[in-house]
Design a protein around this nucleic acid. Structure first.
Length: 209
DNA sequence: AATATGCGCAACCGCTCCGTG
DNA sequence: ACACGGAGCGGTTGCGCATAT
């Protein structure tokens, strides 16, 4: 029993999208706009499940996507937002125009996690790793490695992000270049969201468009 | 030059949320 | 008030490419 499948798996393609499929999806959405994803594949003549179409559009085909490497500034923003929001990738993405939740999630898992660990910061809690842990964990790497890692992520312009999250920098200047980091966020539901004891951030989440 | 290993990204899966009847 | 269906989200997987041996 259980839930009915979101689509007829027997008649749907899986795996990488072909150029032809991309073309069909894009031209359909251009003509009709985003709408009922469940019905879209059939209407667009695609042998895909609606979910798959939605994902492909949002993460890859949307015209307003930025693509390309993340800047130090964006790194910084992601780290700060993650400190406040946790793994709410879609909310974080909402603050970074042209970036998608999937992209940010991947970037976090592949780059930023490591970056924080190299700085001796626990990527989950954003607190300094306790000395013991810091001693064995990734940061037990040779000091010169740590230094290199830290340097690579701490350009003079972005030094703001290069100290422990316990420092109360977010309260003083919550702005990073063009990206407004002034998180006046009103919690979606009650106050279940973590308010860092050290970060004075009043937050208001603008719901996504 | 061939093979092994690691990394990054795109895509899938399953759960939760939310709107509607 | 409840049940149902669709959309959205976060976690995870798998493939292809790059680098190391």
């Amino acid at each position: 029993m259980g839930r009915s499948p979101c689509c007829e798996k027997a008649h749907t393609n899986k795996g990488a999208w072909t150029k032809e499929e991309d073309k069909r999806l894009v031209s359909y959405i251009r003509a009709h706009g985003e709408g009922c994803w469940r019905a879209l594949p059939k209407a667009a003549g695609l042998l895909r499940c609606g979910k798959s179409c939605r994902l492909r559009w949002i993460n890859y085909l949307r015209p307003d996507l930025k693509r390309g490497n993340f800047t130090e500034e964006e790194d910084d923003v992601i780290i700060k937002l993650h400190q406040i929001l946790g793994n709410k990738w879609s909310l974080i993405a909402g603050r970074l125009p042209g970036r998608t939740d999937n992209e940010i999630k991947n970037y976090w898992n592949t780059h930023i996690k490591r970056k924080l660990l190299a700085r001796g910061i626990d990527p989950k809690t954003h607190r300094p790793l306790i000395s013991g842990a810091a001693a064995n964990a990734p940061s037990s790497r040779r000091p010169e490695d740590q230094l290199a890692a830290a340097r690579s992520s701490c350009s003079p312009e972005t030094r703001g992000a290069c100290h422990s999250s316990d420092d109360d920098d977010s309260a003083s200047a919550p702005r990073h270049g063009g990206i407004d980091l002034n998180l006046s966020i009103s919690p979606p539901r009650e106050s279940s969201l973590p308010t860092s004891s050290t970060t004075v951030v009043e937050w208001k989440l603008h719901h996504r468009p």
